[in-house]
Design a protein around this nucleic acid. Structure first.
Lengths: 138, 138
DNA sequence: TCTTGACCTTACCATGATGGGAAGGTCTAT
DNA sequence: ATAGACCTTCCCATCATGGTAAGGTCAAGA
């Protein structure tokens, strides 16, 4: 199987497959006489694993650890669960942060007439004009 | 005022002030004879505006537009509100995406014994092992 | 006056994960 | 034989930020 087919079957672009190889996340595959990379079902399986982990928001670094644990027959599931749990915490922190932004912005948008007049509480807030300070006044 | 003081007063690092100048987000300040950048209250005000916009998750590009609108006395507030509104949509999309990840991961973590045994539904899911496919079975 | 330390300057490199493109080699089907 | 679809490596760009290095400047104190 060439890299293009491996890409199609795994959902990881050829570009990224080469990158993952370069950074050592996956091991270099064998090559044909003409230097083409050759992949088999096992390699594609690994690529799918990576794809799934990335889709779940794990960094490449975390994915690398998970991959190691996956290939370690003797690992404790607790180890994996800890990684997943901290990842959840990180995601939730990020979510809370974004929600804070949405909250502030929604408030500002709600206060903005949104017509042809130049008065705009959103800009006033960004500028730090005291009139409409995010979450206190009002 | 030197760049360090402007940085302290605006919350934007000196490094970033120079960067914003370089990419044209802010205009080059005047210089002392010894080539030091000189800032006044107006420049700091602009920097604070930028800081606030970035904190609210606007990209530098969007911030640039908002800055232009801020400085345009005749702009319609509707224009600003539209930018803010689309930004809210983008944030909410991102939030939903992260929440999807959390949901899937929470489910997996919940299914994982987390002990010394190697059996791990989290890894099974990543590997695409049919037993525990995220959101369908169970 | 000299020194020290805190500031400033520019220039370059790194991050993380991805995409784009160029220049050239290979394979397959017509 | 040729066209077109693949592959190879190498370099560059993104986005916003931080770091570092080599050198200039300034203010305060001995």
């Amino acid at each position: 199987m060439n890299i293009g087919q491996a890409a199609d079957q795994s959902g990881v672009s050829a570009k990224m497959i080469r990158y993952y190889e370069q950074i050592g996340l996956i091991s270099p595959p064998s090559r044909t006489d003409s230097n083409y990379r050759v992949y088999g079902p096992d390699e594609v399986h690994v690529l799918r694993f990576i794809k799934r982990a990335r889709t779940l928001g794990f960094s490449v670094e975390e994915t690398s650890v998970l991959l190691g644990l996956w290939q370690d027959r003797t690992r404790a599931s607790a180890e994996v669960r800890d990684i997943a749990s901290s990842h959840i915490v990180a995601l939730e922190t990020k979510i809370a942060e974004l929600q804070g932004m949405v909250k502030t912005l929604s408030h500002l948008v709600h206060c903005c007439a949104g017509d042809n007049r130049p008065d705009c509480p959103i800009l006033d807030d960004l500028a730090g004009t005291p009139a409409e300070q995010t979450s206190k006044g009002h």
